[in-house]
Design a protein around this nucleic acid. Structure first.
Lengths: 240, 240
DNA sequence: GCAAGGCAATGGTCCTACCTTTGGCCGGCC
DNA sequence: GGCCGGCCAAAGGTAGGACCATTGCCTTGC
């Protein structure tokens, strides 16, 4: 962001910057409450409007949550991949990104992640994944509820094994993006698709449990490839 | 973002939403000028404050650029990977992501991208990469200017061959992130590192030119591995 | 013809007043 | 004694106005 000499600092930007800095330096943690707008305005010797602009901007990027009412206020949000997801969705939305591209990207990224996950998984990771998997298998057998949460949770759980935050964040963003796009279509809500998913997940789990990186890679590749095919068929149907 | 029933719509959010929608629907293109704040306030039958909050938020996420002065105003920005970069930097900054993780992520993502690039590259792609490469080699031989721009440009140019926007955006964000972090260290500014980089890039270019996906994959893997080692050494030096 | 200064449009900031929401406190009623 | 309802305070949400700062354009004067 080469702001450079050009624009002189806006008051609200100064506030934004200070808050971001305090957060990245760990002096402000998730859940902490920021001063009330009036109070903050007093501290910065500025008006409430500037503070509001700053708070509003930070809320838009996902750093703050603002509640109103008695002891409302601005609170530091639990930062996860959601801001990345939002900005990604915006950029891709503008470019009219096809679902094909999205799954292709996952096709490239997820298998290596699965391999790394298999190599790095610890006992607690494996237990965690197993819990998610059992829950998912239970759901798939039972009712035909919403598809997304458990599937996303499984992929997320796998990515967590890598202990690599950038990877985790990027993968989650991509996964959520495809899930959002998929829920717009009719993809993968059907019972037999969900069962098929569970089978893939079970195989993947086995690969990770035995720290078989290559098997994890191959299984994930087939899994995402399967999703890709389903999407393609769904799009073809829709075009008719 | 499960806004749910909870918060009733804020006026500024309604404006934000409408503008985002107009952009994603292609009714507002990069460079277009939005109504002046006062005019917009009149249209929405609201106050200038709400409009300002909306514009400010959209500027923070990188959708708008706001200029002041006579025929200043809010303009739709050319969306690139920059918003993603910013949000990613924020999320990772909070998690105190190590440089090691960043290069590891690139290690996983860039080789497959290089392979895909080699398979998909067209004649104009190859010419474009060659131009970037020649420029870079020229720079490396000459003065010892800033390292970053040409290196990033090369990687970007490679990613462009994939014609996959999500991949391009993610890779650019990661590359810029490591570059930013690297410029804080003393990594890769030295002449011999730059020459080495050029050699890798030249090899990569050859692989892409001949559409040799596996060679591109392997070369990129070695290249990123090399960067990773340099970073590791630099960190070790710094720790002393 | 050119340069300097004024004009007007537009964002930047501040102020003030008022509304809405929401939690807590207090008093009356059951 | 306990519960319910209303009042109050604190906080954000909105409105509108006043004024400053910036900057392109246009006029005016040399």
């Amino acid at each position: 962001m080469p702001a450079g000499v050009g624009r002189q600092a806006r008051v609200s930007e100064a506030i934004v910057h200070r808050i971001k800095k305090q957060i990245t330096e760990g002096r402000l943690l998730a859940g902490h409450k920021l001063p009330a707008e009036r109070e903050m305005a007093r501290q910065f010797k500025t008006s409430r409007v500037s503070v509001r602009e700053a708070y509003r901007s930070l809320e838009e990027v996902g750093v703050l949550r603002i509640r109103r009412g008695a002891d409302g206020g601005a609170f530091v949000a639990q930062l996860d991949h959601e801001p990345v997801l939002r900005s990604l969705a915006l950029v891709l939305g503008l470019g009219r990104t096809s679902h094909r591209e999205l799954t292709e990207a996952r096709m490239l990224i997820e298998p290596p992640i699965a391999r790394l996950a298999a190599l790095r998984a610890r006992k607690d990771d494996i237990l965690r994944i197993e819990r998610v998997l059992l829950q998912e298998e239970h759901d798939a057998a039972q009712r035909s509820g919403p598809f997304r949460p458990t599937d996303s949770r499984f992929h997320r759980s796998v990515a967590d094994c890598t202990r690599n935050l950038p990877l985790i964040v990027l993968m989650n963003a991509l996964a959520d993006l495809t899930a959002n796009a998929a829920s717009a279509l009719d993809v993968s809500t059907r019972a037999r698709h969900r069962l098929k998913n569970c089978q893939f997940h079970r195989q993947l789990f086995d690969a990770i449990r035995t720290h078989d990186g290559e098997k994890a890679y191959a299984t994930m590749a087939r899994h995402v490839g399967d999703i890709q095919r389903r999407v393609r068929r769904s799009l073809a149907r829709r075009r008719k």
